[in-house]
């Protein structure tokens, strides 16, 4: 009897130990940054391509107010309500006090400076594919923006999702180890793939999710239920979106469909970001969309 209890206890300890090991936050090595330096001017393009302002600027912010990354916007989901934090360069309320390595870890590993998993409402599953150089450039750009002293608010997430270590399990299942579109692409579509998959995180809305909230990579960009309410986010694979490449690129700049209706919903906001890029980058995204595998 005593031996049974002992072996149960041992098995329990082992299970907890395994869980702890398997869900440990992944940290980057400082060597990753050696010889690299952030360039704020280049970082501005990364900022707009990455869509940072769409979540981290205050609700309804327009114009230059979109550069005040005070956080506070709430995002309801099946797992709870996530509240975007302050990522302005304020030393206490924002990320001004972070090291570059902490910033890169947050972006690419989804881990906070104190070693906790971030919830994947923060699309690090995309940013994971971004280059370290781009992340440092982004950091340098954010450092030039106005600081906001507004404190970040806690997420409203109930048990069991409140256990951050469980996000470690989720990451094991859903962190990508490469691009969703793996086929050979020409250099323009390749640039578009980087912009779409690593920075602009188009798939977060345009790809359906499984029950755990992970992207169904077999239905990449096939369209999905609208996370913010009724209706569907349209599929944008070539079999579902018949617009010409030029029409797609123009839409991403001026927000007009080929029949000159205008983008609405969240896409209007995405276009406010993508409109800030060079024409070549919007053309690259269009080329990538045309290179997507069919989804029907």
């Amino acid at each position: 009897m005593g031996r049974l209890i002992l072996s149960c206890a041992l098995a329990g300890c082992l299970a907890i130990g395994m869980f702890w090991l398997l869900t440990a936050p992944e940290r980057s090595d400082a060597a990753l940054l050696s010889g690299l330096e952030g360039d704020a001017r280049r970082g501005e393009a990364v900022f707009w391509a990455g869509g940072c302002a769409s979540c981290h600027a205050a609700q309804e912010a327009t114009g230059d107010d979109r550069l005040v990354l005070s956080g506070g916007r709430a995002f309801a989901s099946d797992f709870g309500t996530f509240i975007a934090p302050n990522i302005s360069p304020h030393p206490e309320a924002g990320i001004g006090g972070w090291s570059d390595l902490a910033f890169v870890d947050a972006m690419r590993n989804g881990v906070s400076p104190d070693g906790r998993h971030y919830y994947p409402a923060f699309p690090y599953t995309a940013y994971r594919l971004a280059t370290v150089q781009d992340m440092l450039d982004l950091r340098a750009f954010i450092d030039t923006l106005p600081p906001s002293a507004q404190p970040s608010l806690p997420h409203e997430v109930g048990f069991p999702f409140s256990i951050r270590r469980l996000v470690g399990v989720w990451k094991r299942l859903h962190m990508p180890d490469g691009y969703a579109v793996s086929g050979p692409l020409d250099p323009v579509a390749e640039r578009g793939r980087y912009l779409s998959e690593a920075l602009a995180h188009c798939a977060e809305c345009h790809t359906p999710r499984n029950r755990l909230g992970g992207l169904d990579r077999d239905l990449w960009m096939a369209g999905a239920p609208n996370p913010n309410g009724e209706g569907r986010i349209p599929g944008i694979t070539p079999d579902r979106l018949s617009w010409s490449e030029a029409d797609i690129a123009a839409y991403l700049r001026d927000g007009f469909t080929p029949d000159f209706d205008s983008a609405g919903g969240h896409m209007a906001d995405v276009i406010r970001n993508l409109a800030m890029l060079e024409d070549a980058d919007r053309a690259a995204i269009a080329a990538y969309l045309k290179a997507l595998p069919e989804s029907e």
């Binding site: 209706g231 927000g255 205008s262 983008a263 609405g264 919903g265 209007a268 276009i271 406010r272």
Partner: peptide
């Protein structure tokens, strides 16, 4: 001048028009 126009149309549709599906 087309960008600001698209912005204006989109901003209103964003808040006040049901997205099509």
């Amino acid at each position: 001048a087309m960008g600001p126009l698209g912005n204006a149309c989109g901003a209103c549709h964003d808040d006040f028009r049901q997205p099509s599906d």
